[in-house]
Design a protein around this nucleic acid. Structure first.
Lengths: 198, 198, 198, 198
DNA sequence: GATGAATGAGTATTCATTCAT
DNA sequence: GATGAATGAATACTCATTCAT
């Protein structure tokens, strides 16, 4: 699955880590070369020994998300879907601002490279999810008449909104509880109707 | 129901339009006083005759959403819900610029005033929708066992994601068709399963 | 004594009053055309109907000080000197910031016209004081061997410093009390020595 | 006795010098980052490598006064007082720029931090002088009945005025001669009048 | 007399980046 | 590998002033 494994030097890794921390703690607007360099304890100029520019730092950072996000392990079918949604919310809970970056494709409008990376991630994620949807359909857990893209929206859309509301409300409600509640209803709603006859 | 005066002078409207366009086309980082003023064809200083500051411009911009979004007319119940979703997508189709900004609350994360406005809008919109949900439940069109906030997410979440995907893909698919398809499935999924007969 | 009596129109007078008030209340840096115009209740542009520019407003304002400062009435000799010093401190007490302007010749370094006016005021004031010194000398109240300019400094210098300290300390001590104490010592110190033999 | 580090880099010293010159020659309103940077021959941005902001530049400038002013060496009593006044005037003669700023506390009225520094300097200087006054009193050179703060004003006030007049007149008179004359009179005036014999 | 709209020059400060050492 | 110094372009915003109406 890895397209271009760019093995980062330890210094590069350190920089990417610092960038992640900075975004997570202070928001993306505080991800400046200055802040980054002082976070690491070197001069601003020093960063340019390790990355050609800021864009590349963000690229490296964003690329790393991918590993984190889509590892659901050996699960399949609806269990895999559930696991994915859970994993996402847990990531949000663990690193709220980082998560905000993940969902804010608009933020990177001005650097097409990064937008591209994010778009690719989104696509790949979508692909994986659809696999699991298909498995769930085959398992008879989800009704078969909903097109995959619509299905994707019906499931991921509510999750995204839930996370967004949680973020906007500054964590005012119990994200896990609402997520579980939502998942339960989703599953029931999507269950084939004939099941009741079984 | 209008809280504050929002009668904009023609120049103010022009500025707000330009701001909207700028954000939609280039991202919020490019919404600068400079860009804004040159977009209109005046000096930067000139803008300050019409708005006290950048914040107020964005506020005016954001406030305008509200008018556009929430007028559903005389409908009630599920019909009203459908009308709202349709209205939203039609708005997106009519003013794609506005649309791109509409769901990107993250964009304004760093200015709490605007985040507040957006949050307020969202809350009010949510309130209205919940009314209609309740009506739909009372009408027996929607099952009664889903909490209102979850219901809101199950319906609005997919719509938002649909619009976002449409925006990110630069209008690559037929928004109306997908919206109608989605609506249809939603309605069916949410219909009570004659549970009362069980 | 009036060089060019510029009879101000009532609107001009109003503007000058507002300018004085502004300086007195907020300091000279807040004396802007904007603040001035809103203080009066007109547009910025309107001010230019009454004065050719900001400089002329300040000129008119500064010119008015002259009347206020040097009217000691019918007194002469040492009594007149005392009266002058008292008058100055009372002015300071009444309008602290305005007074600060009076002593801060440096503030107007960049507009030579105003510096000129202030310098002229200072000179004239010095002249008047020296007259009274001479009278005091003739009266035998002040010793005759001190040159007039030095005498001026020996008397006015401490007063200025007193006022400055009072201003810098934000009025932390009793200006009147210290002024009277100072005056008393001054008089005694400057009394001709033979007096003791009289 | 030094409170904070004041070892300036050569570039910092250059900036401070330029700032001093700018204020002295053109008034504080012209002490802008722009003017300052062009005076030195660098970009505005370059200044921020050497000072965090304008405030700190002015602070450094103001702080420098202290070193120059208060070193009188081993002297004590009236000799020390004389030495201090002489030193001050010599400083004025050597660095007229600095001199013009030296007594213009009003200039910094709007930035409380700097006003604070100046006030502190003034206080410390006053303390030192009062020590010497006391010594002079104990030596029987100065009469004992004048409160220390008044005494301070009676001696330093005239000096400040002398220097200010010299500055305003653009060095039109012989500062040294007038200073010596003043000092002589001061000493004589303040000599005890054998009051003890009365 | 007064306004609304605009201007041009200016304010302090920040940013990503470069380069000689 | 890293630093110190610098740059050019940008940021939001303010000021005194002008001009057509």
């Amino acid at each position: 699955m890895d397209k271009k494994k760019k093995t980062l030097t330890s210094r590069q890794a350190e920089i990417v880590d610092a960038a992640l921390k900075l975004i997570a703690e202070q928001g993306i607007q505080h991800l400046t070369i200055r802040n980054l360099s002082t976070a690491i304890g070197v001069t601003e100029a020093a960063l340019y020994r390790h990355f050609p520019g800021k864009t590349e730092i963000i690229q490296a950072m964003v690329s790393r998300f991918e590993e984190d996000v889509d590892e659901i392990g050996e699960l399949r079918g609806w269990r895999a879907v559930e696991a994915a949604l859970v994993r996402r919310t847990e990531l949000v809970l663990a690193k709220p601002d980082l998560a905000r970056v993940l969902f804010a494709e608009e933020l990177f409008k001005d650097s097409p490279e990064i937008a591209q990376i994010l778009y690719g991630m989104m696509q790949r994620h979508q692909q994986i999810m659809k696999c699991h949807f298909q498995e769930a359909v085959d398992d008879g857990v989800i009704r078969a008449d909903i097109p995959m893209d619509t299905l994707f929206r019906l499931i991921l859309g509510p999750l995204r909104l839930l996370i967004k509301q949680w973020g906007l409300s500054d964590g005012a409600f119990d994200l896990r509880a609402k997520r579980d509640e939502m998942l339960e209803f989703m599953k029931e709603l999507l269950t084939p109707k004939m099941q009741s006859l079984r």
